[in-house]
């Protein structure tokens, strides 16, 4: 419980950093760190398979995509950057305040009801769950990936080319 609380607090803080940092590259790295923390939480909760996915796909693949997008888009000149930064600070300064306020409100109110939890599931093996019970989800995943392939083919093509 103690460890879990620390991890959750860290999760909030790191994602806050990812959102607030002025540099896009740092934001991408912050997001990868958030994913890594989420992985640890999942592991703590006893969900190692999902944790592996989170680590490899979100912390790995998505970060690669993000970093390449950041590197493909050019940086602003320093003067422009500083100007933007000032306006950013003005706009984002309220976020930590908002978070603190929300936290304070939620800490004062207790859970207004008792949770009524269902009976535990008979199937505890993820593989059985995914491959036998929820096979249709796998089919959906394949279709989503196919759409992603089309997306890469169409969107990452250079500027508009004429003809086939």
């Amino acid at each position: 419980m103690m460890l879990l609380s620390v991890l959750l607090i860290l999760l909030v803080l790191i994602s806050l950093w990812a959102v607030m940092t002025p540099l896009l590259l740092r934001a991408a790295i912050g997001l990868a760190a958030t994913s890594a923390l989420l992985t640890m939480i999942m592991y703590q909760l006893g969900a190692p398979l999902a944790a592996v996915f989170e680590l490899s796909v979100c912390a790995g693949l998505i970060s690669v995509v993000f970093v390449s997008v950041v590197s493909l888009t050019h940086r602003l000149p320093l003067k422009e950057f500083m100007k933007r930064r000032q306006s950013r600070i003005k706009r984002f300064i309220f976020l930590p305040l908002l978070l603190v306020a929300a936290l304070a409100i939620m800490l004062t109110i207790k859970l207004p009801f008792q949770l009524q939890l269902p009976a535990a599931d008979k199937i505890s093996d993820v593989r059985v769950m995914l491959w036998n019970i929820r096979r249709i989800d796998l089919f959906g995943q394949i279709m989503a990936l196919l759409a992603g392939v089309y997306g890469v083919l169409i969107l990452f093509r250079g500027r508009k080319t004429d003809g086939d």
Partner: peptide, 19 residues
């Protein structure tokens, strides 16, 4: 106590998230 279900759902969510 439905961690298996939650895990399989999270895996699907991650795949869709990537796309």
């Amino acid at each position: 106590g439905h961690l298996a279900l939650a895990q399989s759902i999270v895996i699907t969510i991650i795949v869709i998230e990537v796309v």
